[in-house]
Amino acid sequence: MELIKRSAFRKSVLLLGGIALFLLPLGIVNPYFMYIINLILIYAILALGLDLIVGYTGQVSVGHGAFFGIGAYVAAILAKNLGFSLWLTLPFSIIITAVIGLIIGFIGLKLIEEYLVMATLAFGTIIWLVFLNWTDLTGGPMGIAGISAPPTITLGTLQFPFIQYHDYYPLLLIFVYLGILITRLIIKSGFGRACTAIRDDELAAQAMGIPVFKTKVIMFTISAAFCGAAGALYAHFLHVVSPETFAFGMSVTILTMVMIGGQGSITGAIIGAAILTVSSEALRETPELRMLIYGFLIVIMIMFFPKGIMGLFQISKQRLLKKSIQVEKNVVEKEGLSYEQ
């Protein structure tokens, strides 16, 4: 009874907190901070997407920057050449990246561990070269500029145009919430549990009758679709796409977000996205040292907190649990003693 009450309380707190986050732009005057927060939201979707395959299914991909890029380029090309708005480019981006994800997953996931890493690395590089060299379609190194802002949203008499960075925030936040919701639904489902079973022990999962390959491919496809959505949002938010954004470095950045935040954790993915985006912006002051410091931070994180920040929370939680058990034991022992007396 108390448990139900508590969970209801928890849910309402979460809901209130979630709604309160929409009011964030009111407190932030500096549009640059708003810009960074919006970037964090886009990266959060990416990290959530990659976490599905890395954190929940235990397959490492270093090619997700390419899926992000495909989503962004599809949106950019459709918006630029056919005049599509975000509401049309977004589904196209998601579908096309999902299809490519399906194909790559179908080929790549037959491989195991380090070979899968190599395959996704090769895929990422190929896609990047396509962006760079298919000049007629992608603009080559010049990229595509002047991508339209999302159309004004009209709710009754209220109008929400997209001019400032403040205007994008609620839209992006809604997409992050959607991402969280979908992730939760997946991992709580039987399919999601099959994925975690594969992560924990592939052989055992197979013995239990889980279709390992099929499950992995489906999860990989969903994961790619997340990146596609993030790509479309990125293109319409920044109004420009160019190939170097989606090079190998991007794939590594997304993977690092998941690693630093903590694999297999929604909160972890979002924290990872926030930390990496903020630190890379903060280090902008020293352009020559930026990559050096950034790399150093990542090495420190991976060396000392291999399970990420959420891993740290888990450790302290376990310690607390142990302590409280210990305390209970002590109490019992003491009481036992008193009985004896």
Binding site: Y32, H239, E244, P287
Partner: peptide
């Protein structure tokens, strides 16, 4: 000083920062 790395997306980011921040 803002490093645009000779790339469009970095240029947008760095110009954003210089103007707004």
């Amino acid at each position: 000083v803002g490093d645009d790395k000779a790339t469009p997306s970095e240029a947008v980011a760095v110009v954003n920062k210089m103007i707004m921040n």
